[in-house]
Simulated assay, not measured.
Amino acid sequence: MTAPTPDEAASPTPAAVLSVSDEALADDGYRAAVVDLVAAVAYGEISAFERLAEDAKLAPTLADKVELGSMAAAQLGHVTELRERLHALGVDPFEAMEPFREPIESFHRHTAPSDWWEGLVKAYVGDGLAADFYLEIAGFLDESTGDLITRTLTDVRHSEFVVGRVRAAIEADPPLGGRLALWGRRLMGEALSQAQRVAADREALIALVAGGVDRPGLDLAEVGRVFTRLTERHNERMGRLGLAF
């Protein structure tokens, strides 16, 4: 998934400064939450690979096709390390990913781009929102797993390509900006709904975020701040694309 750039992820959120010892993996509940999060990210990368490879067919030039194909390859490249982590946790990676298949694919069905430009905006904005959500949860993980999730979701080398192409297209065709701004709003709503569904359906993730006697969690006020941060980052990405939001 196209995620925040290293600069975007540089400032830790309140969740990200929390630390959980590797010893926590001995706890079945915590371990189940780690499996869920790693599996969700892994399937998200597989899904992003498929979608970007498909969107490359819409590319107006051969150079654009190659660039999007390179983005797809980068997503698939992340999956190997995530699968290895799931193996190390003693689970079958594909079985662990299966519960996330439908909610992630449902998001993509509801946000299928109608053209090349919508596909580019989705690759940058929509996937960035999903990455932000998982990065918030990653702040509750043991150091090795948290580092893996953060590294996976901030390893982005193609953001400037998307930003440059979209901004140039809007400059050449100003009405396109209005359509893509509306598309960005739709992506925002769908992504937040997906994040809420994923969290609500996985009891281990809820328990992880809620905390316990051995670690802090999020109270209702902090949950609200998390979604505020997600919205703010989305608006920043829209601004970089030259889209009013």
Rank of each mutant, 00 (worst) to 15 (best):
T5R: 06
T5Y: 08
A9V: 06
T13L: 13
T13R: 15
T13Y: 08
L18N: 12
L18Y: 13
E23A: 14
L25C: 03
A33L: 07
V34S: 14
V34L: 07
V35P: 03
D36E: 10
V38S: 04
A39T: 07
A40E: 12
A42F: 07
E45D: 08
E45S: 05
E45H: 08
S47A: 15
F49P: 01
F49L: 06
E50P: 00
L52P: 00
D55H: 12
L62T: 11
E67N: 10
S70P: 00
S70H: 07
A73E: 12
A74F: 01
Q75K: 14
Q75Y: 00
H78N: 12
E81C: 00
R85P: 02
H87N: 13
A88Q: 14
L89D: 06
P93A: 08
P93R: 02
A96Q: 07
E98H: 14
F100R: 03
F100W: 07
E105L: 12
E105V: 01
S106A: 15
S106Y: 03
H110T: 05
T111D: 03
T111N: 14
T111Q: 02
W116C: 10
G119Y: 00
L120V: 06
V121N: 07
G126I: 05
G128E: 04
A131Y: 04
D132F: 04
L141G: 02
L141Q: 09
L148W: 06
L148D: 07
T150G: 10
T152H: 02
T154Q: 04
T154D: 01
R157V: 05
H158I: 01
E160P: 00
V163A: 11
V163W: 02
G164E: 10
L176Y: 05
G177R: 08
R179Q: 13
R179G: 13
W183E: 05
G184I: 08
M188K: 14
G189E: 11
L192A: 05
L192C: 07
S193V: 09
A195H: 13
A195I: 07
R197K: 12
R197W: 00
V198A: 08
D201P: 01
D201K: 03
E203F: 00
E203Y: 01
A204N: 10
I206S: 10
I206G: 11
A210D: 15
A210Y: 02
G212H: 04
P216L: 11
G217C: 09
D219M: 04
E222A: 14
E222F: 06
V223R: 11
V223F: 14
V223A: 07
V226E: 03
T228Y: 10
T231K: 07
N235C: 03
R237H: 02
R240M: 13
F245A: 15
